[in-house]
């Protein structure tokens, strides 16, 4: 059994007008591929934002290493057709910090690695604004991977795409999960994908939740009824 990477203990969060998360406890193990499912507005993104320390819980806590490297593919991003940077230059934005403006040799090497991992080689010079939705999503994934994350969070990254693109992207994610034991937190609506890729699930419901192995996910839920 793998060791636990993140321990969520009795976590609750209320916004002024309503409760979003209620007494949630969960162990996320290193190398786990966890699906987070649940209706719109139930608190999936909120949970992600607590993990990213962008929000503070009302009560309860999350125990995880201070220096945990988190890669995050957010649900929304504002890239319009006029967006000028090439896919490659966009991905390189992830090399932040007070260093020389240009990339070091190691950083260039890492950039090349990530770009081929995510299979962006043939479009790396294209302006991101002109890339298709799926290509954009791959670029976002690449930029989340640049810093060798130990935890990778995908927030509805596969929503509204064709099946082929979905599988391409998730194959990359599975690859990273298997090869480097990167823990994956996959927020999704797509129950077909959820029963195919992840090994565990967290099903958020109003004021309640369920969690367990994907194989134990109730059959009627698995069968494409969108939660």
């Amino acid at each position: 059994m793998q060791s636990s990477l993140i321990k969520i203990e009795n976590l609750s969060l209320s916004f002024p007008d309503h409760h979003v998360l209620n007494n949630l406890s969960l162990d996320i193990k290193k190398g786990e591929f966890l699906a987070v499912i649940g209706e719109n507005g139930v608190g999936k993104t909120t949970l992600v934002r607590i993990l990213l320390k962008q929000l503070r819980p009302s009560s309860g806590k999350i125990i995880m290493p201070d220096d945990l490297r988190i890669g995050y593919v957010p649900q929304f991003r504002n890239i319009d057709v006029d967006y000028p940077l090439s896919v490659r230059d966009f991905v390189s934005l992830s090399f932040t910090g007070f260093k020389f403006p240009w990339l070091s040799k190691t950083e260039k090497k890492r950039l090349n690695e990530v770009i081929s991992e995510v299979k962006l080689n043939n479009i790396e010079k294209r302006p991101l604004g002109l890339a298709s939705g799926g290509e954009k999503q791959k670029a976002y994934l690449a930029s989340a991977l640049v810093k060798h994350p130990q935890l990778l969070i995908l927030d509805e990254s596969t929503a509204s795409w064709d099946p082929k693109t979905k599988h391409e992207l998730l194959d990359v994610v599975v690859d990273i999960n298997k090869k480097f034991s990167v823990t994956i937190l996959f927020v999704s609506h797509d129950l077909k994908l959820v029963s195919e890729y992840p090994d565990h699930y967290l099903w958020l419901q109003k004021g309640n939740y369920e969690s367990g192995k994907i194989s134990d996910l109730p059959r009627d839920v698995k069968e494409g009824i969108n939660v």
């Binding site: 890669g71 957010p74 930029s143 989340a144």
Partner: peptide, 18 residues
């Protein structure tokens, strides 16, 4: 501040994560 300014200007959402 070039790298951080660049990230903050061209991808504020990603910059915040970083």
């Amino acid at each position: 501040i070039f790298r951080d300014l660049k990230a903050d200007s061209f991808d504020p959402i990603g910059a915040r994560v970083n």
